[in-house]
Design a binder for these strands. Structure first.
Lengths: 230, 230, 230, 230
DNA sequence: CATTAAGCGAGACGGTACGTCCCGTCTTGTC
DNA sequence: GACAAGACGGGACGTACCGTCTCGCTTAATG
């Protein structure tokens, strides 16, 4: 799959809102670039697609502004007009692609444990996908560059954290468990930590055993906390 | 602290074994480079010191081979003779500096829980140190470059993992808990995951609460497993 | 004379045609480098001037692309964009500077012998000038590098040879001497050989005696040939 | 013919006198290098052979001290101990190889004209040989480097010039022609100039026509001078 | 309906670092 | 003391991208 299969895409750092159709692999939609004094949406999409295609195909180090420009059939200056750096482009890419894949499915599964495990499986699968490569690259780069770290945490990570907290709260509530926000935070750390450890440190994908164990432990811990706090 | 305070250093990718004295910040020992047809140890140390000083001072992106060469008072070619890349230098740097800081202290603390918490505190503190910056940078770069990932995992991470597994096993044994190797692996993931999540994703240092909770949970889980397996 | 006094310069290997004003020694005209997506003429001139100034000041061995770039206030890549090597730059330099100095002056001198001697004096003087240094260097380098030899012979030397042949033919015609082309070629060899021998082998500048003798001999030989052929 | 066929060789810039056997192409005589505290003659020969083999095979630009050392199976320092530069090695190479090839054959040919033509043919043929390549390279380099020019002129060229002058004088004497030394010098210039012009400037080998013409002209000129001076 | 102004492709430009090649110097240990 | 071996500081090479800067062209909105 040389070109990833992405669904929709909102505006990113610019001001245009639009959706991107599922792109059959390898196909290149015609870029309409002379659109008068308005930002060309097709240029924006061409850049985002070129960027994450190149990331997946060749890796982060080989991802260059010039390469993206060439692949997208776009002038370099056009990229600099709308994005500050290649990282900025990837952040833009990430926003929509990841949102979908990491969404908690309300009312999913029978038991709370099953619901948690389902979400963890989704997270684990995400890291194997192209869009997950983008996140992995951005997390990696954030270790090397403070600006990237700030942007990633202030944007995507903050939002995703909020969703995860809410999702977990809702699942626990189904079982009548309620914990305060601070404890909920620790629970999220406990729940996601082992998966991230696998993805970022070991490099081995999380296996079913680890996922089930993590889900069970998180739930057990939550129950214990709930008992204490009530 | 512009120049980190490192203790000893063994041979790295070459074959020379030596220890590096504690270097007072800013001081530059005379480099003896003409040592006949054998590798100059003082050159090796100058390069390693220059590399991690620059990493801490200016960050990974601004760390260049030319910069290291200049700071170390060494020719660029001399660096390329012994290391393949700046990442290779950092891997070399890491080996000794981290080993010490992450060593399990046998017989430490009273209870097993206390022993685990102490080790976790050590890990957490390590990420704040200069040597921890090196590891964080390497983990980050490993997300961007498959070769780095391979090298890091085959070397430092594999060894550290073995130490962590052994350390944990020993602590559990003190309480009469024994689990099989596969479960021990999961326990290590569970124990280190949340800390790494904090260090690499959230960016917030692990607080006392998270550390204590993680230690307690890990122990509880181990006990449960032990009961099952016996 | 640190900076040579050159007159005009046509386009060289590119496609820009322009003339370079006489440059007072040491003066550096402002280089205008941002000219949109077209080649900057002022950059071109700065490079050519820097190159032959450095050649005359420091010699061919010390002439480096980096040195030229620095002296011209230009990026190295800009040089590589338009020239393949320092030799290529010198070939460009040569084209205009030499053309003028080696031009036959029609109707010069009274007798044919005097006209030939005048041209030979011009050739001899040329080798002492800065522009002559360039030619000497290129001829020298052509002995070391086949590509240079080819380029020099296909370009400058071929054209100059044509001019010399035509010039000689015209002078002989004034005396009613006509010889066929093959003989004319030999005559040119005979006429220029001794001067080049002095310039390239002996290193001694051709003296008046040699020049007059050569002119006389050439003419005598031409007359003899003419008699034979008629 | 990857390895040239050289005959004898005297000591060069060092102090050893020896002759080098004809070396079958491609063969490499065993180098005896550990000879205690005296210069190893086999090392010297290996270096000289390696140098001109490499010159002929790869050209002057690709001729490096390191390459010569490797090809000769000799340490770099050993070369620097005895020669100042690659040019110095070539000068050493030249001395013996060229002497033989450019020697006037006393009593050769019937007429004086025939004798001159024979010598000119020898010169012309020499430039096509490997040893001639060395001279061509050195003459070329002499245009680029004043030190080379000085060394070449003070050594080989001065000696060869003396031989040429003596040779020419003897040939003229056979016909009863005597001229003074200054005129003899001009005659030598006249005689060799066209050939060098062909070899160094045109690049075309001197053809029979040019050689015969040059011989005849030189002789005619000598006769004229002789008549004047008597 | 002309004018204006921004988006855009194109690409030259000054720069920085790359990784390589070879220089000439040096030191060690062997013969 | 000559020599093989080879590490070392140094300098230039030619390349790859960076981010900035015109230049003309195109086109929608404005006057």
């Amino acid at each position: 799959m040389p070109e990833s299969d992405r669904r929709t895409r909102s505006k990113g750092c610019g001001t245009i809102s639009a959706t991107r159709e599922a792109r059959p692999a390898g196909e290149r939609t015609k870029v309409i670039s002379r659109t008068g004094p308005r930002r060309s949406e097709s240029v924006r999409l061409a850049v985002l697609n070129a960027a994450d295609d190149l990331l997946v195909e060749r890796g982060f180090a080989a991802l260059t502004i010039e390469g993206i420009a060439q692949r997208a059939g776009v002038a370099k200056q056009t990229i600099y007009r709308w994005w500050k750096s290649k990282v900025d482009i990837l952040l833009d890419t990430l926003t929509d692609d990841a949102r979908e894949a990491l969404r908690w499915q309300p009312g999913e599964g029978g038991s709370a444990e099953e619901a948690l495990a389902a979400q963890l499986r989704r997270v684990s699968a995400f890291f194997a996908e192209p869009a997950g490569q983008v996140l992995r690259a951005l997390l990696g780069h954030a270790q090397l560059d403070e600006d990237t770290a700030r942007a990633l945490r202030a944007g995507f990570l903050r939002e995703q954290r909020a969703l995860d907290t809410a999702g977990l709260r809702e699942v626990l509530a189904r079982e009548g468990i309620t914990v305060d926000d601070s404890a909920l935070g620790t629970l999220v750390d406990t729940m996601l930590g082992p998966l991230c450890y696998r993805a970022l440190v070991s490099g081995a994908p999380a296996d079913r055993g680890l996922i089930d164990t993590t889900a069970r432990l998180t739930l057990a811990h939550a129950r214990a906390l709930s008992a204490t706090q009530s």
